[in-house]
Structures are given as structure tokens and as C-alpha cells.
Simulated assay, not measured.
Amino acid sequence: MADKISKEARSKNMSAIRSKGTQLEDRVSKELWRRGYRFRKNVKALFGKPDIAIKKFKVVIFLDSCFWHGCDIHYRIPKSNYDYWFNKIERNRARDKEVTLYYQQHGWAVIRIWDHEVKEDFDTVVNRIEQAIQARRLDVRDHNHDHKP
């Protein structure tokens, strides 16, 4: 099925979509920073370029858009160019699974947050992230104490 808008208009729309510095990412990261957590954003050196990474505690946070990551609740495949979008989102989902598995196998905590979760209950999402970081902080502290003479 043909696209309803011109190729130039579609290109302009797509180029306006940001992969980093999104409102979702900014809102979560500002609150984590306010709570005293220090991290790096969009770390290219880490596999899958996590939105937020705390290397010290081996925590990576991915803030996933319902559209681009294929949320089971909200994602609807566009009717125009169906095959393209279906394949694109399936590749994204497969990559998300690969990235999550990679970090789990390397002893990292992986936190994946859907954009609808942030919109529906921001405080619960940030508290969940904070609890995961605190648990990792304790793990690191206990691990370091185990190795001291």
C-alpha cells in the first residue's frame, strides 16, 4: 500500500524523531539526578547504547517507546507500508532481547521501562529504578567486602 504523504514529507517527519534526549529520557534522568544518582546517558561504548548507565553498580536502563519497540499493549502496525513496519519493529524487538540477554549474562541489572509506564505512574517507575540501583549498590558493597583481607 502506498504512503499517503510524499516521500519528502515522510523523510522530514522521520528525521524529527529523536533517539536520545527525548522528553521521556529527560524526565526520568532529571529525577534520578535530583535523587543523587550519577550516571551517563546514551553510552556508545556499551552494547545497545543504553539510555542511562551506572557502570559502578552495573545497571543499565532502557526507556522504550511503545511504537519503536513494539509494546504489546499500544503498538499498532501502520496500515501503509505494512511489511516494512512489521519487519522493522520485529528487528527492534529481537535486538532488545539480545541486548537484555547480553547484560544479564554479564551480571548487569537491566531495567526496561515502557513510555506508557512513565506517563501513567512516573513516581512508581522512578521508585522501581531506585530500588534496583539500591539493590545493586548493596551487591557491589557486599562483593567488595568479600574480597578484602
Rank of each mutant, 00 (worst) to 15 (best):
A16S: 14
R91H: 09
I73H: 07
L24T: 08
F122Q: 07
R112P: 00
R136L: 03
K148Q: 08
D115V: 07
F57E: 06
L101E: 13
P50N: 12
D3K: 13
D123R: 04
V59T: 09
R93S: 05
V118Q: 04
K41N: 08
A132F: 00
Q104A: 02
K55E: 05
N13A: 15
L46M: 04
F122W: 09
P149K: 06
R91S: 13
C66G: 08
W85K: 06
I5E: 09
R76F: 03
F67G: 05
E117V: 02
L101T: 13
R34S: 12
Y75H: 11
K7N: 14
R141G: 03
F122Y: 11
E98R: 02
F47C: 11
K97F: 02
Q104C: 03
S19C: 10
D142Y: 08
V28W: 04
M1D: 15
G48E: 05
V140C: 03
I73T: 03
D139C: 10
Y103L: 01
W108D: 03
E90L: 09
K20D: 04
K30Q: 15
V99T: 10
D146A: 06
D26M: 06
I111P: 00
V43C: 08
I77Q: 07
R38I: 12
A53P: 10
E90S: 14
V43Q: 09
L46F: 07
R137A: 12
N87R: 13
K12G: 01
K4E: 11
P50M: 01
